[in-house]
Write a protein that binds this DNA or RNA. Structure first.
Lengths: 216, 216
DNA sequence: TATTGTGAAATTCTTCACAGCC
DNA sequence: GGCTGTGAAGAATTTCACAATA
Protein backbone atom coordinates (compact mmCIF):
# COMPACT_ATOMS: atom_id res chain seq x y z
CA UNK A 1 0.00 0.00 0.00
CA UNK A 2 1.43 3.36 -0.99
CA UNK A 3 1.20 6.70 0.77
CA UNK A 4 -2.38 7.14 -0.41
CA UNK A 5 -3.49 5.28 2.67
CA UNK A 6 -2.95 8.41 4.72
CA UNK A 7 -5.55 10.32 2.75
CA UNK A 8 -7.83 7.32 2.63
CA UNK A 9 -7.97 6.76 6.36
CA UNK A 10 -11.73 7.30 6.25
CA UNK A 11 -12.15 4.42 3.90
CA UNK A 12 -10.31 1.86 5.96
CA UNK A 13 -13.45 1.07 7.95
CA UNK A 14 -15.63 0.16 4.99
CA UNK A 15 -13.53 -0.37 1.90
CA UNK A 16 -15.55 -1.18 -1.16
CA UNK A 17 -15.59 -4.53 -2.77
CA UNK A 18 -14.66 -6.75 0.14
CA UNK A 19 -15.73 -10.25 -0.90
CA UNK A 20 -18.65 -11.59 1.13
CA UNK A 21 -16.68 -14.69 1.89
CA UNK A 22 -14.08 -12.57 3.64
CA UNK A 23 -16.68 -10.73 5.71
CA UNK A 24 -18.08 -14.11 6.61
CA UNK A 25 -14.85 -15.15 8.28
CA UNK A 26 -14.42 -12.05 10.42
CA UNK A 27 -16.92 -13.21 13.06
CA UNK A 28 -14.93 -16.44 13.39
CA UNK A 29 -11.73 -14.50 13.99
CA UNK A 30 -13.50 -12.35 16.55
CA UNK A 31 -14.90 -15.36 18.36
CA UNK A 32 -11.53 -17.07 18.51
CA UNK A 33 -9.88 -13.94 19.92
CA UNK A 34 -12.53 -13.77 22.64
CA UNK A 35 -11.78 -17.28 23.80
CA UNK A 36 -8.06 -16.75 24.35
CA UNK A 37 -6.63 -16.87 27.87
CA UNK A 38 -6.33 -13.42 29.50
CA UNK A 39 -2.56 -13.60 29.81
CA UNK A 40 -1.99 -13.92 26.07
CA UNK A 41 -1.49 -10.41 24.72
CA UNK A 42 -0.58 -11.08 21.10
CA UNK A 43 -1.13 -13.75 18.49
CA UNK A 44 0.42 -14.47 15.10
CA UNK A 45 -1.59 -15.22 12.00
CA UNK A 46 -0.09 -18.69 12.15
CA UNK A 47 -1.37 -19.35 15.67
CA UNK A 48 -4.83 -17.97 14.91
CA UNK A 49 -4.91 -20.08 11.77
CA UNK A 50 -4.17 -23.21 13.74
CA UNK A 51 -6.98 -22.46 16.16
CA UNK A 52 -9.43 -22.09 13.30
CA UNK A 53 -8.13 -24.59 10.77
CA UNK A 54 -7.40 -21.81 8.28
CA UNK A 55 -4.13 -20.87 6.59
CA UNK A 56 -2.16 -17.96 8.02
CA UNK A 57 -1.97 -16.37 4.57
CA UNK A 58 -5.74 -16.27 4.36
CA UNK A 59 -6.06 -14.56 7.70
CA UNK A 60 -3.47 -11.95 6.79
CA UNK A 61 -5.09 -11.29 3.43
CA UNK A 62 -8.58 -11.10 4.91
CA UNK A 63 -7.48 -8.55 7.48
CA UNK A 64 -5.54 -6.57 4.91
CA UNK A 65 -8.80 -5.59 3.21
CA UNK A 66 -9.55 -3.42 6.20
CA UNK A 67 -6.19 -2.05 7.27
CA UNK A 68 -2.85 -2.97 8.79
CA UNK A 69 -3.52 -4.35 12.21
CA UNK A 70 -0.38 -6.38 12.89
CA UNK A 71 3.22 -5.76 13.83
CA UNK A 72 5.99 -7.41 11.86
CA UNK A 73 7.93 -9.74 14.06
CA UNK A 74 5.34 -10.13 16.80
CA UNK A 75 1.90 -10.58 15.25
CA UNK A 76 -1.41 -8.99 16.29
CA UNK A 77 -2.13 -7.36 19.61
CA UNK A 78 -5.27 -9.15 20.69
CA UNK A 79 -7.18 -6.34 22.40
CA UNK A 80 -6.53 -4.04 19.49
CA UNK A 81 -7.49 -6.52 16.79
CA UNK A 82 -10.66 -7.45 18.66
CA UNK A 83 -11.64 -3.85 18.91
CA UNK A 84 -10.99 -3.29 15.22
CA UNK A 85 -12.99 -6.34 14.20
CA UNK A 86 -15.86 -5.25 16.42
CA UNK A 87 -15.83 -1.85 14.74
CA UNK A 88 -15.70 -3.33 11.25
CA UNK A 89 -18.60 -5.66 11.99
CA UNK A 90 -20.41 -2.87 13.83
CA UNK A 91 -20.76 -4.93 16.97
CA UNK A 92 -18.91 -2.40 19.10
CA UNK A 93 -22.42 -1.39 20.09
CA UNK A 94 -25.54 -3.34 21.11
CA UNK A 95 -28.20 -4.01 18.46
CA UNK A 96 -31.79 -4.47 19.55
CA UNK A 97 -33.35 -7.54 17.96
CA UNK A 98 -36.96 -8.64 17.57
CA UNK A 99 -37.78 -12.29 18.11
CA UNK A 100 -40.75 -13.75 16.27
CA UNK A 101 -42.07 -17.02 17.66
CA UNK A 102 -41.92 -18.03 21.31
CA UNK A 103 -42.25 -21.79 20.99
CA UNK A 104 -39.66 -24.18 22.40
CA UNK A 105 -36.93 -22.76 20.23
CA UNK A 106 -37.97 -19.16 20.79
CA UNK A 107 -37.91 -19.69 24.54
CA UNK A 108 -34.44 -21.19 24.33
CA UNK A 109 -33.32 -18.12 22.41
CA UNK A 110 -34.87 -15.83 25.02
CA UNK A 111 -33.05 -17.67 27.78
CA UNK A 112 -29.74 -17.68 25.93
CA UNK A 113 -27.25 -15.38 27.60
CA UNK A 114 -24.66 -15.39 24.87
CA UNK A 115 -25.89 -12.56 22.66
CA UNK A 116 -24.96 -9.70 25.01
CA UNK A 117 -21.23 -10.03 24.66
CA UNK A 118 -21.46 -10.41 20.90
CA UNK A 119 -23.32 -7.18 20.22
CA UNK A 120 -27.03 -8.04 20.46
CA UNK A 121 -29.96 -8.15 22.83
CA UNK A 122 -33.51 -9.34 22.35
CA UNK A 123 -35.64 -6.25 22.70
CA UNK A 124 -39.09 -7.72 22.22
CA UNK A 125 -40.77 -10.98 21.29
CA UNK A 126 -43.92 -11.71 19.31
CA UNK A 127 -46.23 -14.71 19.21
CA UNK A 128 -49.69 -15.66 18.01
CA UNK A 129 -50.67 -17.49 21.20
CA UNK A 130 -52.77 -15.22 23.49
CA UNK A 131 -51.70 -17.40 26.43
CA UNK A 132 -48.22 -15.95 26.05
CA UNK A 133 -49.10 -12.27 25.75
CA UNK A 134 -47.86 -10.22 28.65
CA UNK A 135 -45.65 -12.99 29.97
CA UNK A 136 -41.97 -12.27 29.94
CA UNK A 137 -38.73 -14.20 29.85
CA UNK A 138 -35.62 -12.43 31.08
CA UNK A 139 -37.62 -9.21 31.26
CA UNK A 140 -38.47 -9.39 27.58
CA UNK A 141 -42.14 -8.79 26.94
CA UNK A 142 -44.16 -10.93 24.58
CA UNK A 143 -46.55 -9.07 22.33
CA UNK A 144 -49.17 -10.26 19.83
CA UNK A 145 -47.89 -10.51 16.26
CA UNK A 146 -50.66 -8.15 15.29
CA UNK A 147 -48.58 -5.39 16.89
CA UNK A 148 -45.34 -6.50 15.25
CA UNK A 149 -45.19 -4.16 12.27
CA UNK A 150 -46.07 -1.11 14.30
CA UNK A 151 -43.60 -1.87 17.06
CA UNK A 152 -40.72 -2.61 14.71
CA UNK A 153 -41.32 0.45 12.59
CA UNK A 154 -41.68 2.77 15.60
CA UNK A 155 -38.61 1.42 17.36
CA UNK A 156 -36.69 1.25 14.09
CA UNK A 157 -35.53 -2.29 14.68
CA UNK A 158 -33.34 -3.52 11.84
CA UNK A 159 -32.76 -7.11 12.95
CA UNK A 160 -35.21 -9.95 13.53
CA UNK A 161 -34.94 -13.59 14.51
CA UNK A 162 -37.58 -15.82 12.97
CA UNK A 163 -38.42 -18.94 14.97
CA UNK A 164 -41.79 -19.98 13.61
CA UNK A 165 -43.16 -22.81 11.44
CA UNK A 166 -42.11 -22.89 7.78
CA UNK A 167 -45.69 -22.48 6.64
CA UNK A 168 -45.89 -18.91 7.89
CA UNK A 169 -42.23 -17.89 7.62
CA UNK A 170 -42.44 -16.20 4.23
CA UNK A 171 -45.51 -14.23 5.20
CA UNK A 172 -43.91 -13.01 8.39
CA UNK A 173 -40.67 -12.20 6.56
CA UNK A 174 -42.60 -10.05 4.11
CA UNK A 175 -44.16 -8.19 6.99
CA UNK A 176 -40.81 -7.72 8.72
CA UNK A 177 -39.28 -6.30 5.56
CA UNK A 178 -42.25 -4.03 5.10
CA UNK A 179 -41.73 -2.74 8.63
CA UNK A 180 -38.10 -1.90 7.95
CA UNK A 181 -36.11 -4.97 8.99
CA UNK A 182 -32.89 -5.38 7.00
CA UNK A 183 -31.38 -8.52 8.55
CA UNK A 184 -33.19 -11.76 9.33
CA UNK A 185 -31.82 -14.74 11.23
CA UNK A 186 -34.11 -17.47 9.98
CA UNK A 187 -34.62 -20.70 11.92
CA UNK A 188 -37.50 -21.87 9.73
CA UNK A 189 -36.30 -24.63 7.39
CA UNK A 190 -37.26 -22.82 4.23
CA UNK A 191 -35.53 -20.42 1.84
CA UNK A 192 -36.93 -16.94 2.34
CA UNK A 193 -37.47 -14.64 -0.58
CA UNK A 194 -36.50 -11.07 0.27
CA UNK A 195 -35.56 -7.92 -1.65
CA UNK A 196 -31.92 -7.08 -2.51
CA UNK A 197 -31.39 -4.76 0.42
CA UNK A 198 -32.34 -7.37 3.04
CA UNK A 199 -30.00 -10.10 4.26
CA UNK A 200 -31.02 -13.51 5.49
CA UNK A 201 -28.86 -15.95 7.42
CA UNK A 202 -30.31 -19.45 7.56
CA UNK A 203 -29.97 -21.82 10.49
CA UNK A 204 -31.22 -25.32 9.74
CA UNK A 205 -29.76 -28.18 11.74
CA UNK A 206 -31.00 -30.82 9.30
CA UNK A 207 -29.12 -29.12 6.49
CA UNK A 208 -25.98 -29.38 8.59
CA UNK A 209 -26.56 -33.04 9.33
CA UNK A 210 -27.32 -33.89 5.69
CA UNK A 211 -24.14 -32.15 4.73
CA UNK A 212 -22.16 -34.53 6.87
CA UNK A 213 -23.94 -37.79 6.12
CA UNK A 214 -22.69 -37.61 2.56
CA UNK A 215 -19.25 -38.37 3.89
CA UNK A 216 -20.19 -41.13 6.34
CA UNK B 1 -20.00 -37.98 -21.20
CA UNK B 2 -19.13 -40.92 -23.47
CA UNK B 3 -20.35 -44.50 -23.45
CA UNK B 4 -18.18 -45.28 -20.43
CA UNK B 5 -21.05 -44.17 -18.24
CA UNK B 6 -22.74 -47.46 -18.83
CA UNK B 7 -19.90 -49.43 -17.27
CA UNK B 8 -19.50 -46.88 -14.53
CA UNK B 9 -23.09 -46.98 -13.33
CA UNK B 10 -21.87 -48.11 -9.90
CA UNK B 11 -19.80 -44.99 -9.50
CA UNK B 12 -22.60 -42.55 -10.13
CA UNK B 13 -23.61 -42.68 -6.49
CA UNK B 14 -20.27 -41.57 -5.06
CA UNK B 15 -18.02 -40.16 -7.76
CA UNK B 16 -14.65 -39.09 -6.46
CA UNK B 17 -13.59 -35.52 -6.16
CA UNK B 18 -16.93 -33.79 -5.86
CA UNK B 19 -16.14 -30.34 -4.41
CA UNK B 20 -17.39 -29.88 -0.85
CA UNK B 21 -19.15 -26.72 -1.87
CA UNK B 22 -21.25 -28.74 -4.30
CA UNK B 23 -22.17 -31.33 -1.67
CA UNK B 24 -23.09 -28.45 0.60
CA UNK B 25 -25.77 -27.27 -1.81
CA UNK B 26 -27.47 -30.62 -2.28
CA UNK B 27 -29.39 -30.41 1.01
CA UNK B 28 -30.75 -27.05 -0.12
CA UNK B 29 -31.99 -28.55 -3.36
CA UNK B 30 -33.56 -31.40 -1.46
CA UNK B 31 -35.29 -29.07 0.96
CA UNK B 32 -36.68 -26.93 -1.85
CA UNK B 33 -38.06 -29.99 -3.64
CA UNK B 34 -39.81 -31.08 -0.47
CA UNK B 35 -41.65 -27.80 -0.15
CA UNK B 36 -43.19 -27.87 -3.61
CA UNK B 37 -46.96 -28.24 -4.01
CA UNK B 38 -48.04 -31.85 -4.54
CA UNK B 39 -49.50 -31.16 -7.97
CA UNK B 40 -46.20 -30.02 -9.46
CA UNK B 41 -44.55 -33.05 -11.00
CA UNK B 42 -41.51 -31.56 -12.68
CA UNK B 43 -39.27 -28.53 -12.30
CA UNK B 44 -36.64 -26.92 -14.52
CA UNK B 45 -33.23 -25.86 -13.29
CA UNK B 46 -34.31 -22.32 -13.95
CA UNK B 47 -37.35 -22.58 -11.70
CA UNK B 48 -35.42 -24.30 -8.93
CA UNK B 49 -32.74 -21.65 -9.23
CA UNK B 50 -35.28 -18.88 -8.79
CA UNK B 51 -36.61 -20.53 -5.65
CA UNK B 52 -33.14 -20.70 -4.17
CA UNK B 53 -31.51 -17.58 -5.54
CA UNK B 54 -28.96 -19.66 -7.46
CA UNK B 55 -28.20 -19.74 -11.18
CA UNK B 56 -29.71 -22.52 -13.25
CA UNK B 57 -26.28 -23.35 -14.66
CA UNK B 58 -24.95 -23.98 -11.21
CA UNK B 59 -27.76 -26.34 -10.37
CA UNK B 60 -27.27 -28.30 -13.58
CA UNK B 61 -23.54 -28.52 -13.08
CA UNK B 62 -23.87 -29.55 -9.45
CA UNK B 63 -26.26 -32.36 -10.32
CA UNK B 64 -24.10 -33.47 -13.24
CA UNK B 65 -21.39 -34.58 -10.81
CA UNK B 66 -23.68 -37.40 -9.77
CA UNK B 67 -25.50 -38.40 -12.91
CA UNK B 68 -28.03 -37.29 -15.45
CA UNK B 69 -31.28 -36.74 -13.66
CA UNK B 70 -33.13 -34.43 -16.01
CA UNK B 71 -35.00 -34.63 -19.30
CA UNK B 72 -34.22 -32.19 -22.10
CA UNK B 73 -37.20 -30.06 -22.85
CA UNK B 74 -39.07 -30.64 -19.59
CA UNK B 75 -36.65 -30.47 -16.67
CA UNK B 76 -36.42 -32.73 -13.62
CA UNK B 77 -39.10 -35.08 -12.38
CA UNK B 78 -39.45 -34.05 -8.76
CA UNK B 79 -40.08 -37.41 -7.09
CA UNK B 80 -37.18 -38.96 -8.94
CA UNK B 81 -34.72 -36.17 -8.24
CA UNK B 82 -35.67 -36.12 -4.58
CA UNK B 83 -35.10 -39.82 -4.31
CA UNK B 84 -31.72 -39.52 -6.02
CA UNK B 85 -30.62 -36.68 -3.77
CA UNK B 86 -31.70 -38.61 -0.71
CA UNK B 87 -29.63 -41.56 -1.87
CA UNK B 88 -26.60 -39.44 -2.62
CA UNK B 89 -26.77 -37.76 0.79
CA UNK B 90 -27.56 -41.11 2.41
CA UNK B 91 -30.71 -39.78 3.99
CA UNK B 92 -32.90 -42.38 2.33
CA UNK B 93 -32.65 -44.09 5.72
CA UNK B 94 -32.98 -42.87 9.31
CA UNK B 95 -29.80 -42.09 11.24
CA UNK B 96 -29.82 -42.40 15.02
CA UNK B 97 -28.30 -39.35 16.69
CA UNK B 98 -27.03 -38.74 20.21
CA UNK B 99 -27.83 -35.43 21.86
CA UNK B 100 -25.43 -34.10 24.48
CA UNK B 101 -26.83 -31.42 26.75
CA UNK B 102 -30.47 -31.12 27.79
CA UNK B 103 -30.63 -27.45 28.76
CA UNK B 104 -33.08 -25.06 27.17
CA UNK B 105 -31.63 -25.59 23.74
CA UNK B 106 -31.32 -29.35 24.14
CA UNK B 107 -34.96 -29.56 25.17
CA UNK B 108 -36.02 -27.54 22.15
CA UNK B 109 -34.07 -29.98 19.99
CA UNK B 110 -35.74 -32.95 21.68
CA UNK B 111 -39.14 -31.45 21.04
CA UNK B 112 -38.39 -30.58 17.44
CA UNK B 113 -40.33 -32.77 15.09
CA UNK B 114 -38.56 -31.85 11.91
CA UNK B 115 -35.68 -34.32 11.91
CA UNK B 116 -37.75 -37.38 11.09
CA UNK B 117 -38.58 -36.46 7.53
CA UNK B 118 -35.03 -35.36 6.84
CA UNK B 119 -33.35 -38.64 7.76
CA UNK B 120 -32.60 -38.40 11.48
CA UNK B 121 -33.99 -39.20 14.91
CA UNK B 122 -32.66 -38.49 18.37
CA UNK B 123 -31.91 -41.89 19.84
CA UNK B 124 -30.65 -40.88 23.28
CA UNK B 125 -29.75 -37.78 25.27
CA UNK B 126 -27.06 -37.14 27.88
CA UNK B 127 -26.72 -34.56 30.62
CA UNK B 128 -24.71 -33.94 33.77
CA UNK B 129 -27.70 -32.96 35.90
CA UNK B 130 -28.91 -35.93 38.01
CA UNK B 131 -32.32 -34.25 38.22
CA UNK B 132 -32.78 -35.05 34.57
CA UNK B 133 -31.71 -38.67 34.57
CA UNK B 134 -34.49 -41.07 33.76
CA UNK B 135 -36.82 -38.32 32.57
CA UNK B 136 -37.76 -38.44 28.97
CA UNK B 137 -38.94 -36.07 26.26
CA UNK B 138 -40.75 -37.55 23.29
CA UNK B 139 -39.83 -41.02 24.57
CA UNK B 140 -36.15 -40.24 24.44
CA UNK B 141 -34.36 -41.24 27.61
CA UNK B 142 -31.85 -38.99 29.33
CA UNK B 143 -28.73 -40.71 30.62
CA UNK B 144 -25.79 -39.46 32.67
CA UNK B 145 -22.84 -38.30 30.56
CA UNK B 146 -20.74 -40.82 32.43
CA UNK B 147 -22.46 -43.48 30.33
CA UNK B 148 -22.03 -41.60 27.07
CA UNK B 149 -18.91 -43.26 25.67
CA UNK B 150 -20.12 -46.74 26.44
CA UNK B 151 -23.57 -46.19 24.98
CA UNK B 152 -22.32 -44.57 21.80
CA UNK B 153 -19.69 -47.21 21.19
CA UNK B 154 -22.07 -50.09 21.85
CA UNK B 155 -24.84 -48.69 19.70
CA UNK B 156 -22.36 -47.59 17.05
CA UNK B 157 -23.79 -44.11 16.84
CA UNK B 158 -21.94 -42.01 14.25
CA UNK B 159 -23.67 -38.66 14.71
CA UNK B 160 -23.92 -36.41 17.75
CA UNK B 161 -25.46 -33.04 18.49
CA UNK B 162 -23.56 -30.95 21.02
CA UNK B 163 -25.67 -28.45 22.97
CA UNK B 164 -23.53 -27.69 26.00
CA UNK B 165 -21.51 -24.72 27.29
CA UNK B 166 -18.39 -23.75 25.34
CA UNK B 167 -16.18 -24.46 28.32
CA UNK B 168 -16.77 -28.19 28.13
CA UNK B 169 -17.46 -28.57 24.41
CA UNK B 170 -13.94 -29.55 23.36
CA UNK B 171 -13.65 -32.13 26.12
CA UNK B 172 -16.96 -33.71 25.21
CA UNK B 173 -16.08 -33.64 21.51
CA UNK B 174 -12.86 -35.52 22.23
CA UNK B 175 -14.85 -38.13 24.10
CA UNK B 176 -17.40 -38.44 21.32
CA UNK B 177 -14.67 -38.94 18.75
CA UNK B 178 -13.00 -41.51 20.97
CA UNK B 179 -16.30 -43.38 21.16
CA UNK B 180 -16.61 -43.51 17.37
CA UNK B 181 -18.64 -40.45 16.39
CA UNK B 182 -17.79 -39.17 12.92
CA UNK B 183 -20.16 -36.22 12.52
CA UNK B 184 -20.85 -33.51 15.09
CA UNK B 185 -23.48 -30.80 14.92
CA UNK B 186 -22.03 -28.23 17.28
CA UNK B 187 -24.18 -25.58 18.93
CA UNK B 188 -21.43 -24.44 21.31
CA UNK B 189 -20.00 -21.12 20.12
CA UNK B 190 -16.45 -22.37 19.82
CA UNK B 191 -14.37 -23.96 17.07
CA UNK B 192 -13.91 -27.64 17.82
CA UNK B 193 -10.66 -29.37 17.07
CA UNK B 194 -11.21 -32.85 15.68
CA UNK B 195 -9.22 -35.39 13.65
CA UNK B 196 -9.34 -35.48 9.84
CA UNK B 197 -11.91 -38.24 9.66
CA UNK B 198 -14.50 -36.38 11.74
CA UNK B 199 -16.76 -33.62 10.41
CA UNK B 200 -18.13 -30.71 12.39
CA UNK B 201 -20.94 -28.41 11.36
CA UNK B 202 -21.17 -25.27 13.46
CA UNK B 203 -24.37 -23.51 14.40
CA UNK B 204 -23.83 -20.17 16.09
CA UNK B 205 -26.58 -17.59 15.80
CA UNK B 206 -24.30 -14.73 16.87
CA UNK B 207 -21.95 -15.52 13.99
CA UNK B 208 -24.90 -15.23 11.65
CA UNK B 209 -25.98 -11.92 13.11
CA UNK B 210 -22.46 -10.46 13.04
CA UNK B 211 -22.24 -11.50 9.44
CA UNK B 212 -25.20 -9.33 8.60
CA UNK B 213 -24.46 -6.29 10.76
CA UNK B 214 -21.44 -5.56 8.58
CA UNK B 215 -23.83 -4.59 5.82
CA UNK B 216 -26.28 -2.55 7.90
C1' DT C 1 -39.44 -26.16 -28.99
C1' DA C 2 -37.54 -26.10 -24.51
C1' DT C 3 -34.21 -27.52 -21.52
C1' DT C 4 -30.42 -30.47 -20.21
C1' DG C 5 -25.42 -31.59 -19.72
C1' DT C 6 -20.94 -29.87 -20.40
C1' DG C 7 -16.46 -28.22 -22.36
C1' DA C 8 -14.39 -23.68 -22.37
C1' DA C 9 -14.06 -19.02 -20.66
C1' DA C 10 -14.42 -15.94 -17.04
C1' DT C 11 -14.30 -14.89 -12.44
C1' DT C 12 -13.37 -15.50 -7.70
C1' DC C 13 -10.71 -17.24 -4.04
C1' DT C 14 -6.54 -19.17 -1.95
C1' DT C 15 -1.81 -19.91 -1.60
C1' DC C 16 2.85 -18.67 -2.53
C1' DA C 17 6.83 -16.29 -1.62
C1' DC C 18 9.33 -12.50 -0.41
C1' DA C 19 10.36 -7.36 0.38
C1' DG C 20 9.86 -4.60 4.17
C1' DC C 21 9.65 -3.70 8.83
C1' DC C 22 9.63 -4.30 13.98
C1' DG D 1 15.07 -13.31 13.39
C1' DG D 2 10.37 -13.44 12.87
C1' DC D 3 6.26 -12.06 11.07
C1' DT D 4 3.26 -8.95 8.38
C1' DG D 5 1.26 -7.21 4.08
C1' DT D 6 0.80 -8.05 -0.66
C1' DG D 7 1.55 -8.61 -5.70
C1' DA D 8 1.65 -12.60 -8.58
C1' DA D 9 0.69 -17.39 -9.43
C1' DG D 10 -2.22 -21.04 -8.94
C1' DA D 11 -6.53 -23.40 -7.83
C1' DA D 12 -11.30 -23.55 -7.39
C1' DT D 13 -15.76 -22.10 -8.63
C1' DT D 14 -19.14 -20.04 -11.50
C1' DT D 15 -20.95 -18.65 -15.74
C1' DC D 16 -21.31 -18.95 -20.64
C1' DA D 17 -23.02 -20.77 -24.63
C1' DC D 18 -24.34 -24.35 -27.43
C1' DA D 19 -24.66 -29.27 -29.25
C1' DA D 20 -27.59 -32.90 -28.15
C1' DT D 21 -32.06 -34.58 -27.47
C1' DA D 22 -36.69 -35.65 -25.20
Amino acid sequence: MDSANIRDRRKIQKPMGVPEIVVGRLPLYLRALSHLPEEVKAITSDELGNLLGISSAQIRKDLSYFGEFGKQGSGYEIDYLRQQLQQILQVDKQWPVALVGVGDLGQAILSYGGFQERGFYIDVAFDVDPQKFGKSFNDIQILPVSQMSKFIAEHELLIAIVAIPSSVAQMVADELVQAGVRAILNYAPVTLNVPEHVRVYHIDPAIGLQNMTYYL
